[in-house]
Design a protein around this nucleic acid. Structure first.
Length: 889
RNA sequence: GGGCGGUUAGCUCAGCGGUAGAGCGUCUCGUUUACACCGAGAGGGUCGGGGGUUCGAUCCCCUCACCGCCCACCA
């Protein structure tokens, strides 16, 4: 029993019911209706063990709006859900748990047991985020949920890795990587964050071997001198000409290293002489290669100094070693001063520790080659960015892309399918069996193989997401129908991490772009404007907001704030305002119900005879066109704004007020038409608003369908309105707008004159105001019309010489004689006159310019002239009125 | 160093070549049978500064200032 609608909507009670009903009904699955266009979005997979933060809420709200919109428009919609295993992040969480429980660490535990533990954590917390997304109303096809480490996706990863390897697009290389000494793994360039840090620039003297003096180098990292293999100076640098080719005796180690000439040395920087440490600096690495210098690694995987440094420094932490090196140099009298500087230091984005360039063997994807097709797809318009300016960012990065280091020295992830055999042989195959077979073929006998210990970067599997979730490498019907997907919705912080890589993998393996459009939305920032992130923990909790205001309010707020181009600072007040919007809609429905505005399935929007009804039908047609256009253009804020204004400012403020007398009147035919129209418009509102506020609209759909014509199904399966522009009746539009304008004008007139309702003001004031006489006539006409339409009974009863009417919630009284607050009115008129005179002056100037240049269209000049005259005349009238008032006083 | 974005009402932000907008907040008024999560009104802005284009600039162009973000470099 639904019964009478209460005064407010109760989201907590209602939302779970609809969530379940929708899912059970199969409404989230693609309709696969014959002839229906496909529409597909793959969800940006959240971390499997994560929970919903406000960024997810925004991201998924926007996707859900599009998905529900297209579903209503009759497309066969697939919103593909899934989660990411989030290698480093998840492993980190579990390691922390182990530490907190006082358990043994992962190394002591061993790979197998540790992975068991991670899987257990995945099982325990893995469902959380999808439960939360359901609360938000996300209409994903939950039956198709995928996980980057499930069987199918893991198979895709293997296949891709092997295929790329066979094509030479994945290779193993020994080069410098960003090494995270905390996690003891390589990380990609993107996982390094540079932080401004206060530090020192130390100057150190390296004595020349021949005793002819010294060369002073500058460095921020003195401990790395233990791995120095040369000192470089610029060949054009006069100061050092004579030293090129000489040897210096490297302090603390006694090694002899050469002074070399290389353009890399900048005479302006430091002392102009730079120490070269190829194993621990990316630039030095290049110099080392150029000059065939040895590479001396001085660090262990944990960032301690290794055994290739003199005894006193071995096993010291790099920071401790720095102090000791400085002290020892001081003792030897080789320090040549220092400066305080601020410089940026690379840190691991997850670990937060300083990362080290470190020389290791890693697997690389040949990103520069894969980028070619990915760039072309965007250049050729196959994939479009919204807003378009992000294409520039995309191009910039893609055109300068570096090889992508994809191996990680972690355990949680896809293990690299490479096996090592005798004589340095490597077999990259999809299974151990295949690798063994390949090895047997090579060696002519069965050999022992050991598998690569490393796993792949999390983003490797994410890069396959658009096709792997649709079934690839199987040629599934879904893959055929929904690839390329329609649109990807994501935030700009992962364009490089994710979007770019999906483009590369999609173009390579599918030969087609993974999505036609990439919609980049803003980041939701915290109060200080800082980026909210999973690891920082400075997030707003969307679940709390949903508890407090309902999912619809949160969704509508996020949509209304999702303007293209600016990040969002969310405030609760705003959400509260949109919660009130829901209540407003709710009460409009309540009003309709109380007035027996029942749905009628035979309703023809072209049929109304009453002016107000013709008008609202036209307004509805406009709203449909507007909201459709804005959603198609992905201007979510505009689309939300259209609905907000239509519901509140048009339907509620004016239409429902205008029809009150009709509903209470005696014209039965008009009454019936009005009831049906009001109900029909409400239906259109519910449909259009459904993508934004699915719960309240679905609930009202059910409630309003309780009387009158029976609904054929849930709102979620309705059809988006298709209304002809012919429904806009210009005559009705003009009539109603005329009334609205006048009523608004009379309202403000009363207030401007600053008299209480019912008080009396002199006729001369109205008459003397701008357009005064004409206005008085119009008021009289308005009153007549409204009386005719039975808008007001009091108009008839108004005392002679005054008019009073009630409309749109306000009593408007216009007595035509009486008293007035003279000082206030004098001030107002003076101000008004000054404003008008300024206007006239401006007009004169414009007209002067226009005549002089004589280039303005005649119409405009004419318009300007007219306006000038009007303003001038008004000013004169006001002056006259002012004189009269002053005379009276 | 390269790139992107921002600067509009007290706050949070839309908008835009044609007389400045919303929500919230503030102040007045309101026991009108949908809604006080409401209604009617008011106040509050030289649209960051300076140039230019234009009949007309908050909007387009140039420039400066400040703020933020991304990338690169950092001896």
């Amino acid at each position: 029993m639904l019964g009478m609608i209460e005064t407010t909507f109760n989201p907590k009670a209602v939302e779970p019911i609809w969530s379940e009903a929708w899912e059970k009904s199969g409404a989230f699955k693609p309709s696969n209706a014959p002839g229906a266009d496909p529409f597909c979005i793959v969800i940006p997979p959240p971390n499997v063990t994560g929970s919903l933060h406000i960024g997810h809420a925004l991201n998924n709200t926007l996707q859900d709006i599009l998905v529900r919109f297209e579903r209503l428009r009759g497309k066969s919609v697939l919103w593909q859900p899934g989660t990411d295993h989030a290698g480093i992040a998840t492993q980190m969480v579990v390691e922390r748990q182990l530490a907190a429980e006082g358990n043994i660490g992962r190394r002591e535990m061993g790979r197998e047991d540790f992975l068991k533990r991670v899987w257990a954590w995945k099982e325990e917390s893995g469902g959380t985020i999808f439960k939360q997304l359901r609360r938000l109303g996300a209409s994903c096809d939950w039956s198709r949920e995928r996980f980057t480490m499930d069987e199918g996706l893991s198979a895709a990863v293997l296949k891709v890795f092997v295929a790329l390897h066979k094509d030479g697009l994945i290779y193993k290389d020994k080069r410098l990587v960003n090494w995270d000494p905390h996690f003891e793994t390589a990380i990609s360039d993107l996982e390094v964050v540079n932080k401004e840090t206060k530090g020192h620039m130390w100057r150190i003297a390296y004595p020349l071997e021949d005793g002819s003096g010294e060369i002073v180098v500058a460095t921020t990292r003195p401990e790395t001198m233990l791995g120095d293999v040369a000192v470089a100076v610029n060949p054009k640098d006069e100061r050092y000409q004579s030293m090129i080719g000489k040897q210096v005796k490297l302090p603390l180690t006694g090694r002899l290293i050469p002074i070399i000439a290389d353009d890399y040395a900048d005479p302006e920087a430091g002392t102009g002489a730079v120490k070269i440490t190829p194993a621990h600096d990316f630039n030095d690495f290049k110099v080392g290669k150029r000059h065939n210098l040895p590479m001396i690694n001085i660090l262990t995987s944990r960032g301690l100094l290794n055994d290739d440094v003199p005894l006193p420094y071995r096993r010291l932490d790099r920071s401790v070693a720095r102090e000791k090196v400085l002290q020892d140099l001081e003792a030897e009298g080789l320090r040549r001063g220092e400066d305080n500087i601020t410089h940026t230091v690379p840190h691991g984005d997850r670990s937060g520790v300083v990362v080290e360039p470190w020389l290791t063997d890693q697997w690389y994807v040949d990103a520069p080659k894969l980028a070619v097709a990915a760039i072309a797809a965007v250049e050729g318009g196959k994939t479009k960015f919204t807003p378009k300016n992000w294409e520039k960012t995309y191009f910039e990065w893609m055109r300068n892309i570096e090889p992508w280091c994809v191996s990680r020295q972690l355990w949680w992830g896809h293990r690299i399918p490479a096996w090592y055999g005798p004589e340095g042989s490597i077999f990259v195959e999809e299974s151990e069996t295949a690798a063994l077979a390949a090895a047997r073929a090579k060696f002519g006998r069965t050999v022992e193989l050991t598998r690569d210990e490393d796993v792949l970067d999390t983003w490797f599997s994410s890069a396959l997401w658009p096709f792997s979730t649709l079934g690839w490498p199987q040629q599934t019907p879904e893959l055929k129908t929904y690839y390329p997907t329609s649109i990807l919705v994501t935030a700009h912080d992962i364009i490089f991490f994710w979007v770019a890589r999906m483009m590369m993998m999609g173009m390579h393996f599918m030969k087609e772009e993974p999505f036609h459009e990439v919609y980049i939305h803003a980041l939701v920032r915290d109060a200080t404007g800082a980026k909210m992130s999973k690891s920082k923990g400075n997030t707003m909790d969307p679940l709390e907001l949903i508890d407090k205001f309902g999912a619809d309010a949160l969704r509508f707020t996020l949509a209304a704030m999702a303007a293209q181009g600016r990040d969002i600072k969310l405030s609760e007040q705003r959400i509260e305002g949109y919660r009130n919007f829901g209540t407003k809609l709710w009460n409009a429905a309540r009003f309709a119900q109380m007035n027996e505005c029942a749905v009628w399935d035979q309703y023809d929007p072209a049929s109304p005879q009453q002016t107000v009804n013709k008008w609202i039908v036209g307004e509805t047609a406009k709203a449909v066109a507007d909201v459709t256009r804005e959603l198609e253009a992905r201007r979510f804020n505009e689309a939300a704004g259209v609905m907000y204004r239509f519901v509140w400012n048009v339907y509620c403020d004016w239409y429902l007020e205008f029809i009150k007398p009709l509903l209470n009147g005696s014209d039965e035919e008009a009454k019936l038409e009005t009831r049906r129209t009001a109900a029909w418009v409400l239906d259109q509102i519910l449909i259009m608003l459904h993508p934004f506020m699915p719960f309240i609209t679905e609930e009202l759909w059910a409630r309003t369908g309780e009387y009158g014509h029976k609904r054929s199904g849930m709102l979620i399966t309705e059809a988006w309105p298709k209304l002809s522009e012919k429904l806009i009746d210009p005559t009705a539009e003009a009539e109603i707008n005329w009334m609205i304008d006048l009523i608004a004008e009379t309202r403000s007139t009363r207030s401007q004159l600053n008299v209480p309702a019912g008080a009396k003001i002199p006729l001369l004031l109205i008459g003397a105001d701008r357009d005064g006489e004409a206005r008085l006539e119009r008021y009289q006409e308005l009153i007549d019309r409204m009386a005719r339409l039975e808008y007001s009974t009091s108009a008839k009863d108004a005392p002679k010489g005054s008019v009073t009417f009630v409309l749109a919630g306000a009593t408007v009284a216009l007595p035509l004689e009486g008293v007035v607050d003279l000082p206030a009115e004098t001030a107002r008129l003076t101000k008004e006159i000054a404003k008008l005179e300024a206007e006239v002056k401006k007009m004169d100037q414009r007209l002067g310019n226009a005549d002089y240049v004589a280039r303005a269209p005649e119409e405009i000049v004419e318009e300007l002239r007219e306006r000038r005259e009007e303003e001038a005349a008004s000013a004169e009238k006001l002056k006259a009125a002012l004189k009269q008032i002053q005379g009276a006083a």
